[in-house]
Simulated scan of single mutants.
Amino acid sequence: MQAPLIDPFHRPISYLRVSVTDRCDFRCTYCMAEHMTFLPKKELLTLEELDRLCSAFVGLGVEKLRITGGEPLVRKGIMTFFRAMARHLESGALKELTLTTNGSQLERFAPELAAMGVRRVNVSIDTLEEAKFAAITRWGRLPQVLKGIAAAQAAGMRVKINAVALKGFNEDELFTMTEWCAREGHDLTFIEVMPMGEMGEETRLDQYWPLRDLRARLAERYTLTDLTERTGGPARYVRLEETGSKIGFITPLTHNFCESCNRVRLTCTGELYMCLGQEDMADLRAPLRASPDNAVLEHAIRDAIARKPKGHDFDYSRQRVAGQVSRHMSHTGG
């Protein structure tokens, strides 16, 4: 048994988020530009390299693996990678294999994902109005996503809905979204819009809806009970007593969740970001390709974890976007 990954602040690193592609079949306005320049395919790690990298992390104590993008299910041959990761579930080394998706390809892949051991899936939906959905995603179609969610449920997967809180866009759907999730049996997490990518400060400030305000509005209609549970992510949860449903809040701007951070993010090119809100990263592609032996790679991983910062510093105060990072969310993985 190798020594586990422990960062400088004594936090065990047990959660790896892996972006398998920067490409997506949507163009959500808060995530990427409409006319994105994507990475040349030759720069991406192969599925075999992603397997080797993720397996190295599992060998060092990572117990939860979340596959992200871009949209992970648009990568050609991606089921081969899920099948490879499923062997770690079967061995018991990996406790959870899951993914975050826009839902566009779920109807096609849900049965196979479930057969490989995926028990939960996060689906991003910011509005339940078809025209608004098309506007915010630019290329997305809500009925296609809803069919994907139904397929995931039919396959036995639990669905969590992720909704980015956007001022002036989905404020009027707060209760509609909450009640729909309660009826359908979905957990729901609201996320503050993050300053990721060159989108323009005016846009960010216009979009920003603090979750403390959203929560206060929920409390006007429901009885909110704070929950102590943690799922290995940054969300803080409440239970709505009237419906029994669970609501999560991810607040990178109005609440610092870094003290319990247990995760790192791997990009599709082999860059390891130790913090979503910092620019520092470690190149794991070079050590991965330098030797067929994993000793060099594992040494690079440990060196990277030793640089993990205490936290990020996103801030929208003083009518400016402080702490903005230049890469788009699709580059690092949502």
Rank of each mutant, 00 (worst) to 15 (best):
T21M: 00
Q153V: 14
V159L: 00
V159F: 00
T269H: 01
E229R: 15
C31I: 02
R119C: 01
R239K: 02
S19P: 06
S91F: 00
D315L: 15
V118C: 00
D187P: 04
L142V: 03
K167Q: 06
A182T: 09
A110H: 03
T137F: 03
D226L: 11
G61E: 08
A295K: 02
E179R: 10
T269S: 01
A115K: 13
R17S: 11
R66P: 08
E192R: 07
R119Y: 05
V193W: 09
E279R: 10
E184A: 13
P143H: 06
P210V: 12
A290D: 10
D313K: 10
E130L: 03
C31V: 09
A163W: 09
D206G: 11
C181Q: 06
R302L: 00
E112C: 09
A115N: 05
A33W: 10
R302Y: 00
E192C: 08
G103D: 03
T98L: 07
L166W: 08
T80S: 08
R108D: 14
T189G: 05
G323D: 07
G270M: 11
Q319I: 00
P4K: 02
T178W: 04
H88R: 01
L45T: 03
R217F: 06
T29C: 14
F175R: 03
H328F: 15
P4W: 03
L106K: 01
G168D: 05
Y273K: 12
E271K: 14
E34I: 08
L276E: 07
M177N: 05
H186L: 11
G61C: 01
Y222F: 09
E112H: 13
G117V: 00
L174S: 05
M157Y: 07
A56R: 03
M36R: 13
K132Y: 01
T98H: 02
A134D: 00
G248P: 03
A151E: 09
Y30L: 11
R120H: 14
D226A: 14
M199F: 13
K147D: 12
I6C: 06
Q207P: 02
R141M: 06
P234M: 07
T37S: 14
T100S: 14
A115W: 04
C54N: 10
E171M: 06
R158F: 08
H10Y: 10
L297P: 00
K95H: 08
R285H: 11
C181L: 04
M196S: 13
E43N: 14
N262C: 12
T100M: 08
P40Q: 11
D25A: 06
R320T: 05
M32R: 08
G59I: 01
R212F: 15
T228V: 15
L227A: 02
T251P: 01
R230D: 14
A154D: 12
V74Q: 08
V58D: 05
I247S: 02
P287D: 08
V193A: 10
